[in-house]
Each structure stands twice: as structure tokens, then as C-alpha cells.
Nucleic acid binder design. Structure first.
Length: 851
RNA sequence: GGCGGCUUGGCGGAAUUGGUAGACGCGCUCGACUCAAAAUCGAGUUCUAACGAGUGUGGGUUCGAGUCCCACAGCCGCUACCA
């Protein structure tokens, strides 16, 4: 762009303001114990989801949420709040390690370089972060407290009586022995089938599997000894306490479905010719009379015992086939049920019938008991399976409408069910459960889909577990040894075996007393589970955060953070894990709120100009750096907020950036006129009272609307209003300085650089000393100034607009009627009709109903 | 399959609680300035020559529906054999 076309010299002043804010620590947030801390000021904690500092740098999606929170933070500051608005980096993670494998560079080096890039980019956008509170999850001081929190979890169990986590020392006091305690710790070791990727050299969480497979990595199922966190103990609380939060209903529902509570019963089936029973879980105990066969998961531990000799080969072949199937394969084969008969039979406790026991991969070992009673008449999957293998189908529910009973899964009336006959499903369920409990062969049971959290990884770039092994038992290392950092390695390449990579560091692993270090590391989620806590007291060396800081930054609501903005992709993982950790720390008395995030807002995805998801392969990616250098940080910020509602998905339009950039230039030219390449103060700017009633009204409407809209996070409409206000100033003969400054203040949170620059330049010309706009108070609007004496009254005939005219704001019905019937546009639509009714809404509508 | 979200001009989007549909911006058209262009400023811009019609489609409630109710369709996202 040539100099002549530059709308205003943003390239000069944007970096200058950023430097000034930084050197003066304009946005420093004093906390308890800090200089200038004022405990009487109300606090406001507004948080962004911190970025993973990838090599690609900031994406335009990042500044969307970040600008939104920045506007809210700056606004709250102007309304007298002590605002905590921090930023940091989620800097552990697999990509850094993959990069290290490729280049041989230590992940710490690439991570530091990436953080450097992110920091520069964030600073170039003028966000009002307190940079003294910046954190990175990879900092040793941060790792220390991540490990410390892990130890709190490790040293706790879930007390069923109080429904809370408690220290295991309570169990010791009760005389529990070491092994018993290890059984109940919230962090425990278990052999469990996990997703293992040989070429990544680590296990993956269920939810990570697809992502890495799509990048060409292989993933297989195998049982491994892993660290798990007992999040399932919190299932009910994680569901119930959602109700106390101000989150989008959709996200709450997503979490509820993920946790997946269902009510039903467990039922024990005696196995023919064996001494033991197999337990199933069902949500439909009322259909027990309709059970015609039983299905076990292929991995079910009883399978080898019950399989008959002539079925052995078939069963083992099937088990083998299943173990190599991935989730995806199972999904593809969804419609095509498969399974093998074990040769064994179970006895239906209600009628003594012999039920053939099958194994099939549509039954999952990880849910319920890994075994089901199959009721093909009233369960879709069982129905399909029964048809496929010609198993018998017996009706036990009569539909209440005329539907076919075959495959009817809804509620109805029990039939062919002995003592349940004639009962509606709900009552039949209850009666069956009572019967089972009475006979001690079953009981009421609540089942959750949520599984315990697989918490260990075999990679290098993560927090090592603060655990050592001695005589086959795990022990916490002492807190004084924290942080326990991973030793440097020369080679990060996966070995192809599930051995954690840290095993290679033999000197580090083997301790003098013969004990061994745990070589697994924590997943990336660990750091993001508590970063919002550390921001409150980031430099504390004695505690993860001080009690004073926690007390001050916490709220009187259940959730600590007042506003949390981020993408919807974290609806179930990060947001569930963080809630879990927070609750454990709350239970143990380290925190005073039960929830981390009171209000959550999901920003909508920004699509490419072509309306498609931005991606390198489509070539529709917009780089924020380019936008900043061409139009400036203020224009980028403003554009991202003007695009549409924050939560909506919306496409990028470079023409729109030009539009808001033009708007900022218009604001600039209200104050300055160009002459010989110099911007001189406009003669229209005058330090006089505003005599233009309309202009004054618009300014006060703007103060009111922008404030209200920021509270509602309706930034696009706030910007519209400021455009209207600017247009009014552009057209005014005289621009009263006070009112113009008010516009600058309300625009400042959106476009902080250009507003500060205008403000400072105007002051310089008139030789006045002014403080930073960022430190101004939000202006108050004058309700008097908002009043319009004349309003437009709309006249309708039968609900259709026929005429409109200006009328006094408090005109009564008589006056309105007189005016309405004086209009020929109105009366011509009344010809030949009788007036039935008149609806008069003062100040709005005068509707004549006639026919 | 299940769940959630969305659907308003050429485009992004406005519209408190049911009360003037299309604010604001983009684009486009015309005009001013200019030798000319850019930039800027001003006027216009839902469709239709007009009568009228109009917020995905069809119905309903109401004096009045983008907004409330019922049914349906199309896009997008998440999830997926959870017993």
C-alpha cells in the first residue's frame, strides 16, 4: 500500500502504544500482598483457553475469543473492577516431541521458540494481559505444582459416605493396610486394554485415536499396565453440579451424555453346569422374561472357562479377530453383526429357561459388566443379531399404539411376563427389581458411560510421575524433590515397544537404593487442568496458589472464573478433566469453590472466504500477521468482533476488514485533517458544551448501548452503534471535545491503539495533560439526553402498515386517532368496511381492525 | 442412527418482551471533488413497471408472527453397537 492510501499511521503508533503499556505495566493486576492492591475493589476474572504453541503460529481463530475477553476485561476495568485477564501456553505435547524426533532438537528449544512467536503475535494485537502472570505448563516451577496436585490425587480416595475425596491417611488411621489403600486411591495402576501406537511410541486416549490415525499413524489395542485417575467416582457430581453453571445448554448436554448415566438393574444368571454366575446390566429389567440368549464381550474373563471343546476353535478365532479390530472397523461393521456361540448356557432366573451364551463384539467389555441379557424382541441390536443367527424372539412388551412389537423398544405394557403381565413398563421395571432384590439375584443399579481416565503416556515431552517403585509397589516421592524433571535424552525415537521412552535414561531411572523411577509421563491435559488457578498467584514458590489469592479471585458463585471463552472442541475433555481436578482439590480443602468456570462461552469457528473450514490444503487460511501489517491490530480486532455474533460460525471476508478499517479512519478524521501529509487537529473539534440535541442523544445512546452490548457479549451490534455515532460526528459542524472523548472511551476496549493515539494527539495540541484512555472510567449516560420528544407512530389497517407520521411522544389514543384518520392512505383502506376494534400501543402502533 | 446448532437482500449480519423486517457494514449504481484516477464526501440500493409479495416449506394461535405452537425439508457440528 502506498503512503498516500494509508488511512492513518497505525504502523507507527500501534507498536508505540504496545511498548508504553508494557513499560508502564498499565495492565498489571495487583493481587493480595502486591503493591497497590485494593481489596475493596470487586474482582473480575476473565479467561481465555490458552493456546498450544504450535510451530504454525497464531491462527485467526485465536484472536476471536481473545479479543472478546480483552474487550470485556478492559470494559470491566473501566467500570471499577480489578480484572484478572491472563495468558499462557499449554506447551507440553506430542507435536513438539515429533518435531524433536525429526530434527534432533530438544523439545524445550522448539517450544521456547514457538512461545516466543506466540508472545510476539499476541503482543502485536494489543491485548491487555498482565504479562507478569504469564505461565507455560512446561516451566519447571509449573511442573512442580502439577506434580504436587497429582500427589494430592494419589494420596486420596473417594469416601462414599461423604461423597468426597479424602486423604488416604484417614484409612491408615482406620487400620487399612497398604494393599487395601492402593485399591482405592484416586490415582491407581491397572492393567487395561489401551490404544497403543507403535510409531508414536505411546498409548493414546480414546478420543485421541482418530486424530493420530488420520495423520497416518498406526494404533492398536493391547492390554498394558497404566496409571488411571478415578474420575468415575465423580460421575454423579459432575452431572449434578452442571446445573449450577452458566454454560450453554448444548455443552452441558454434551457432558451429561458423555458421562452417560442410566438407571437399571444388575441381574445374576446362573451358568448351567458351572458353579458361578454371570452378571449383566440392563436398563430394561421389565423385559427379563423376553431374554432368549446372553452375550459376553469377546474379552470377557469367563469366556475361556465356559467355552465347550467343540466351540473352542471358533471362539478363539473370533476373539483374535476382534482384538485387532479398531473402533473404526467395529463402526464400519456396525450393520453387520457378528458373533460365535460358546456352547454354554445360562439359566433365566424368572422362568428357568436355558439361554445360549454367545460372544459378540457389539458387547463392550468396558461398559456395564461386559455381558448382556439379549431381548431381541425389544432391543434393536439384539433383534438384528437374533435375525442374523436365527435365535428365538419372544414378545414381552405390548406397544400402546399400533406399532409392530418386533423390535419395539419404547415403553408399553408387559405381556408374557408372569407376575408383570398388564403392568406399564415403568411399574414393571420397579416390580422386577424388587423381585430380584428379594431373591438376591439382582439389584437396582446406576451405570455410567464415563470410564476412568487413562492418565499415563510413554512420551518424553510431559510431566514425569513423581513416583518411584520399590519391591513392586509404587511410592510418592517427597514434595521436596519436586519438580521432578525428565532427564535430557539424545534420542526420542519410539522403540516400537510400549516401554516408556524415559526407560532409556537408565541413570535417572535407577536410584541408589535399588528403587526405580516411574517412567510414564502425564498427558497434556494435566497442565491445562489447573492453569487458571496458577494465574492467580503465578510466582508462588511455597504453594500452588496462596489461600489469600484463592480467596480473593474466587467468587461467591460455584464457579471461580467469571467468564471463560474458548472453542467448543473442549466441551468434554478439558472441561471435564478440569472440573474433576477442581473438585478433588475442593474436597481436600485446597479450594473454596466446587467448580472452576462459572460462565462459559464458545466462540464460533471462523471459516475461510470460501465458506469452508480453513486449511492449508484448501489454501484459504488467513494469517493474522498479514492482516495486522496491512490494516493494523485495531482493524483486525474490530473486524473479528464485527463479523457476527461471537458464538456463531462465520466466514472471513477481507472486504469486511477494509470496511472496519475505513470506519477507524473516519473516527481519526473526525479529529484530524490532512494537510501536506500532516495530520492537523480539525477546527471542528472544540472544547464547548454540546448544543446539538440530536448529536448529544446519539452519543448517550451509544454509551448506553455499547455498555449493555459488551455485557451481553454482543460486540457486533456495539460496533454498529459506534459507527452510527461516528457518522453523526462526521456530519456535525462542531465536534464537542467532551462528547467525542466519550466516544473514544467506549471505543477504546475494541480499538485501544487508535483511540489512545487520537486522545493523546488532541491533548498535545491543546497543551493538556491527560491520562491514558485505558485508565479512564466508563462514561455514564444521561437518561435526559436519551429522550426524544417526537416519535414515529405507525398506522396499520388489519395489521398492515399504511402510514406513519411524527407525533408527540406522549400523544394519547385520541390524538393518534385524529392523526390516523386524517390520512388518506389510511382511510382508503377503510372504505366500505366497519371498524371492529382499535389497538393502540403508545409510541409504537395504531392498528385499525376492520372488515 | 442419536443429540445439538443453523436457515432473513447480491454478501456478513440487525430486529428488547410478538408491534415499522432488512439497523450497521460489504458490494453495486449515481453524483461531488479531480485533467484523470485513487482516496474522500453525498444520494440511492429486498423483489416487482405496477398492484402487490416477502424472513427455508406447509399449517396453526393472534388485531398483529422473523419472533410463539405443530409438521416437514436442507445445511453444519458432535457422537456413535453404552445394553
Amino acid at each position: 500500500m502506498s503512503d498516500a492510501r494509508k488511512p492513518f499511521p497505525f504502523r507507527e503508533f500501534e507498536p508505540q502504544w504496545q511498548q508504553r503499556w508494557e513499560s508502564e505495566k498499565t495492565f498489571r493486576t495487583p493481587g493480595p500482598g502486591d503493591e497497590n492492591f485494593d481489596p475493596t475493589k470487586p474482582k473480575f476474572y476473565v479467561l481465555d483457553m490458552f493456546p498450544y504453541p504450535s510451530g504454525a503460529g497464531l491462527h485467526v481463530g485465536h484472536p476471536e475469543g481473545y479479543t472478546a475477553t480483552d474487550i470485556v476485561g478492559r470494559y470491566k476495568r473501566m467500570t471499577g473492577h480489578n480484572v484478572l485477564h491472563p495468558m499462557g501456553y499449554d506447551s507440553f505435547g506430542l507435536p513438539a516431541e515429533q518435531y524433536a524426533i525429526k530434527t534432533g532438537q530438544h523439545p524445550a528449544i522448539t517450544t521456547a521458540a514457538n512461545i516466543e512467536t506466540f508472545r510476539r503475535q499476541l503482543k502485536s494485537l494489543g491485548f491487555a494481559y498482565d504479562w507478569d502472570r504469564e505461565i507455560a505448563t512446561t516451566d519447571p516451577e509449573y511442573v512442580r505444582w502439577t506434580q504436587w496436585i497429582f500427589l494430592q490425587i494419589y494420596n486420596s480416595y473417594f469416601c462414599e459416605e461423604t461423597n468426597k475425596a479424602q486423604p488416604v491417611s484417614k484409612l491408615e488411621a482406620k487400620g487399612w493396610n497398604r494393599d487395601q489403600i492402593d485399591e482405592v486411591r484416586l490415582a491407581f495402576v491397572a492393567d487395561t486394554p489401551v490404544w497403543w501406537s507403535p510409531d508414536l511410541g505411546t498409548v493414546l486416549a480414546n478420543e485421541e485415536v482418530e486424530e493420530w490415525k488420520s495423520k497416518g499413524h498406526t494404533v492398536e489395542r493391547r492390554p498394558l499396565r497404566q496409571w488411571m485417575l478415578r474420575i468415575t467416582k465423580y460421575s454423579q457430581r459432575l452431572i449434578d453440579e452442571l446445573d449450577t453453571l452458566d454454560w450453554p445448554e448444548g455443552i452441558k448436554l454434551l457432558q451429561k451424555n458423555w458421562i452417560g448415566r442410566s438407571e437399571g438393574a444388575s441381574v445374576k444368571f446362573q451358568i448351567s453346569n458351572f458353579k458361578f454366575q454371570i452378571e449383566v446390566f440392563t436398563t430394561r429389567p421389565d423385559t427379563l422374561f423376553g431374554a432368549t440368549y446372553m452375550v459376553l464381550a469377546p474379552e470377557h474373563p469367563f469366556v475361556p472357562q465356559i467355552t465347550t471343546a467343540d466351540q473352542k476353535a471358533a471362539v478363539e478365532a473370533y476373539q483374535k479377530a476382534c482384538s485387532s479390530k479398531s473402533d473404526m472397523d467395529r463402526g464400519d461393521l456396525n450393520k453387520d453383526k457378528s458373533g460365535v456361540f460358546t456352547g454354554a448356557f445360562a439359566i433365566n432366573p424368572v422362568n428357568g429357561e436355558q439361554l445360549p451364551i454367545w460372544i459378540a463384539d457389539y458387547v463392550m467389555m468396558g461398559y456395564g459388566t461386559g455381558a448382556i441379557m439379549a431381548v431381541p424382541a425389544h432391543d434393536e441390536r439384539d433383534h438384528e443379531f437374533a435375525l442374523r443367527f436365527s435365535l428365538s424372539i419372544k414378545q414381552v412388551v405390548q406397544p400402546n399404539d399400533n406399532s409392530d412389537w418386533q423390535g419395539y423398544t419404547a415403553y408399553g405394557t408387559a405381556v408374557n411376563s408372569g407376575f408383570l403381565d398388564g403392568l406399564p413398563t415403568a411399574e414393571a421395571k420397579a416390580k422386577m427389581i424388587d423381585w430380584l432384590e428379594e431373591k438376591s439375584i439382582g439389584q437396582r443399579r446406576i451405570q455410567f458411560k464415563l470410564r476412568d481416565w487413562l492418565f499415563s503416556r510413554q512420551r518424553y515431552w510431559g510431566e514425569p510421575f513423581p513416583i518411584i517403585w520399590k519391591d513392586g509397589k509404587h511410592h510418592a516421592i517427597s514434595e521436596s524433590e519436586l519438580p521432578l524433571l525428565a532427564p535430557p535424552l539424545d534420542d526420542y525415537k519410539p522403540s516400537g515397544t510400549p516401554e516408556p521412552i524415559l526407560t532409556k535414561a537408565t541413570d535417572w531411572v535407577h536410584l541408589p537404593d535399588g528403587s526405580l523411577r516411574e517412567t510414564n509421563t502425564m498427558p497434556q491435559w494435566a497442565g491445562s487442568c489447573w492453569y487458571y488457578l496458577r494465574y492467580c498467584d503465578p510466582k508462588n514458590t511455597g504453594r500452588f496458589l496462596s489461600r489469600e489469592a484463592e480467596n480473593y479471585w474466587t467468587s461467591d458463585k460455584p464457579g471461580m472464573v467469571d467468564l471463560y471463552v474458548g472453542g467448543t472442541e473442549h466441551a468434554v475433555l478439558h472441561l471435564l478433566y478440569a472440573r474433576f481436578w477442581h473438585k478433588v482439590l475442593f474436597d481436600l480443602g485446597h479450594l473454596t469453590t466446587p467448580e472452576p468456570f462459572q460462565k462459559l462461552v464458545n466462540q464460533g469457528l471462523i471459516l475461510g472466504e470460501d465458506g469452508q473450514k480453513m486449511s492449508k490444503s484448501r489454501g484459504n487460511v488467513v494469517n493474522p500477521d498479514d492482516v495486522v501489517s496491512e490494516y493494523g491490530a485495531d482493524a483486525l480486532r474490530l473486524y473479528e468482533m464485527f463479523m457476527g455474533p461471537l458464538e456463531q460460525v462465520k466466514p472471513w471476508q477481507m472486504k469486511g476488514v477494509e470496511g472496519v478499517s475505513r470506519f477507524l479512519a473516519r473516527v481519526w478524521r473526525v479529529a484530524f485533517e490532512e494537510q501536506d501529509g500532516q495530520w492537523n487537529l480539525s477546527t471542528k473539534i472544540q472544547d464547548v458544551p454540546c448544543t446539538d440535541k440530536t448529536l448529544l442523544r446519539i452519543v448517550h445512546e451509544t454509551i448506553k448501548k455499547v455498555g449493555e452490548d459488551i455485557e451481553k457479549l454482543s460486540f457486533n451490534t456495539a460496533i454498529s452503534q459506534m459507527m452510527i455515532c461516528t457518522n453523526a460526528f462526521t456530519q456535525a459542524e462542531v465536534v464537542p471535545l467532551k462528547e467525542f472523548t466519550q466516544l473514544l472511551i467506549v471505543l477504546n476496549p475494541f480499538a485501544p491503539h487508535v483511540t489512545e493515539e487520537i486522545h493523546a494527539r488532541v491533548a498535545a495540541v491543546s497543551n493538556r495533560q491527560v491520562s491514558l484512555l485505558s485508565e479512564s472510567s466508563w462514561p455514564t449516560y444521561d437518561p435526559e439526553a436519551l429522550v426524544r420528544n417526537e416519535i414515529e407512530l405507525v398506522v396499520q389497517v388489519n395489521g398492515k402498515l399504511r402510514d406513519r407520521f411524527m407525533i408527540s411522544k406522549d400523544a394519547d389514543e385520541e390524538a393518534a386517532k385524529a392523526a390516523a384518520f386524517a390520512s388518506s392512505k389510511v382511510t382508503e383502506h377503510l372504505e366500505g368496511k366497519t371498524i371492529r376494534k382499535i389497538v393502540f400501543i403508545p409510541g409504537k402502533i395504531f392498528n385499525i381492525v376492520a372488515n
